[in-house]
């Protein structure tokens, strides 16, 4: 395990070095990703310019959700966002080269890039976090503080699992890559707002089946001490780490069987 981490660190440090080589263009890229992601928060601000509350959530509470999901998502985007380009690996036969190296396939695909410039998104999320905390009155117990950290980490794990599972679609059709966007970017967009606002079927599919509700909504109910308008069991508010682990396991199984199929059927 430690050896794998060491090799990973080496592989991505090469990427990072070459990305940081051009300072100016890196700074511009960073600014670019910051701005594009900030667009979503501008939407939040405009919405709250029209109403004082959204389904019982105030601006700062929604900002809290927004920041949490953005940081979770953006960190995952930096590390495995290049899975969006995985179809190209299949199409160009680069994946075959991965199969002849003595490391796990998913490991190698993930280690093939590390998008430093997307840290702009992370920064945006952090800034909104600060804004949110500034306007919230939270009774910060040790439990709540710990839960906040767990929320962001578990949220990241859930996004990562969805991203990996979604990327396997490239083994079936090389052009269908965009299909996954609905879950990854869509999931991020969806969780910026309390999931109680969405219609029942959308909730069932995108928030429970694909466990987006656990990315920040449920934990936030506990942290912000809000009653659940949906009236669901309190235990769910603490379930995100379990859900994250389960999601990771499922994603791993999906990836492995997809690779098995590829080795059986070819491309």
């Amino acid at each position: 395990m430690a050896d794998a981490l060491a090799v990973y660190a080496r592989l991505i440090s090469a990427q990072v070095r070459s990305q940081l080589q051009y300072r100016v263009s890196f700074a511009l890229d960073l600014a670019g990703t910051f701005l594009i992601s900030f667009l979503d928060f501008i939407a939040v601000l405009i919405i709250f310019d029209n109403v004082p509350e959204l389904d019982g959530w105030t601006l700062h509470e929604v900002a809290f959700l927004y920041a949490s999901t953005c940081v979770s998502f953006a960190v995952v985007d930096v590390v495995i966002g290049h899975l969006d380009l995985f179809p190209r690996m299949i199409r160009e036969g680069t994946f075959d080269l991965i199969l002849v190296r003595p490391r796990g396939t998913l490991f190698q695909v993930i280690a093939s890039d590390f998008a430093m410039r997307k840290l702009g998104k992370v920064l945006q999320g952090v800034i909104v976090f600060v804004f949110a905390l500034g306007g919230l009155e939270v009774d910060w117990t040790a439990g709540r503080a710990a839960m906040t950290l767990v929320m962001v980490l578990a949220g990241a794990a859930i996004f990562a699992a969805v991203w990996v599972a979604g990327a396997t679609i490239a083994f079936w059709t090389v052009d269908g890559g965009e299909f996954t966007n609905a879950f990854t970017y869509g999931g991020n967009f969806m969780t910026q707002y309390p999931i109680s606002i969405y219609g029942e079927w959308v909730r069932r599919f995108l928030a429970y089946l694909i466990p987006m509700a656990f990315v920040c909504y449920f934990p936030s109910l506990y942290i912000l001490d809000k009653p659940d308008p949906l009236g669901l069991p309190r235990a769910l508010q603490f379930a995100s780490p379990v859900v994250a682990v389960a999601a990771a396991v499922v994603a791993g199984v999906i990836w492995r069987s997809a690779v098995r199929r590829y080795r059986s059927v070819g491309s």
Binding site: E92, D96, P102, R103
Partner: peptide, 22 residues
């Protein structure tokens, strides 16, 4: 597969296995 890869070497004519920018 993984054990085997340690015992074999591969060069695929058209596909580059080296890191492009390094």
């Amino acid at each position: 597969r993984i054990e085997l890869t340690r015992r074999i070497g591969v060069v695929f004519g058209q596909r580059v296995q080296l890191w492009w920018d390094l």
